[in-house]
Amino acid sequence: MRIAVVGKGGAGKSVVAGTMARLLARGGDKVLALDSDPIPGLAISLGLGPLDTPMLLDAVEKDDNGRWRLKKGIGAARAVQRYSLVGPDGVRLLQFGKTTASGLKDFMGSVNGFYQVVHRLARDDSLSGWTIVGDLPAGPRQTAFDWVPYADKLVLVVEPTWQSILTARRIARISRQRSGVEVVAFGNKLREDGDTDLIEERLGERLGGSLPFDPLVAEADAHGKALIDHAPDSPAVHAIEHLIDAISRRKVSA
């Protein structure tokens, strides 16, 4: 299963992605978590704490035309094996990282390397048994610009607000312009009885699951901790278990 988590800013993508990754790893999967946001946040939701490191700087070099490429002998599997960071429950994390004082120039090597790795993930036989969970930046940009070629499932995290729904609708429409991706809408921060209907009606999609507003989510983030470590028995964690059940048709538990 190869999942990408998308939606508007603040919808809860990283928490959903990080918690899914941990739960799937506990269920016995080999899990690769991907953070392609230049303001990385997935590491926190995975339980690694804040982490800005650009991970693929050593994996890339410039060719004769000055374009970044993966070094000889480095394919997707090797990049994962050598440059990812192993976190709690054995989840491996690969991220863009964040631009630093050393400047955008170096950072771009990591970004370009990342793009090339994600394009090889689905084609690399030695990674065929892996579960992938990608956490995307806000909005439709990366979905539109082919940053998630690996995904067979797109989890659309959506709040019951117009801005969130319009964004989700746009991403769903764009993703369906490519074939072979199943879109699963997941409602987040639901507060009132009618919120599910409201989202479904305005979004034009049925929700594959939903999560009530849970203050423990913000509390975990305030402590810089993974939700699954801070509040393993919270309604949010259980809702994410159900989401995995729904999209993979199998049971996991915290």
Binding site: G139, P140, A144, D146, R170, R173, I174
Partner: peptide, 13 residues
């Protein structure tokens, strides 16, 4: 207020 929108991504590249 005069609103100006620069661009919007509606389709795959």
């Amino acid at each position: 207020v005069r609103l100006v929108v620069v661009s919007r991504i509606d389709n795959i590249d």
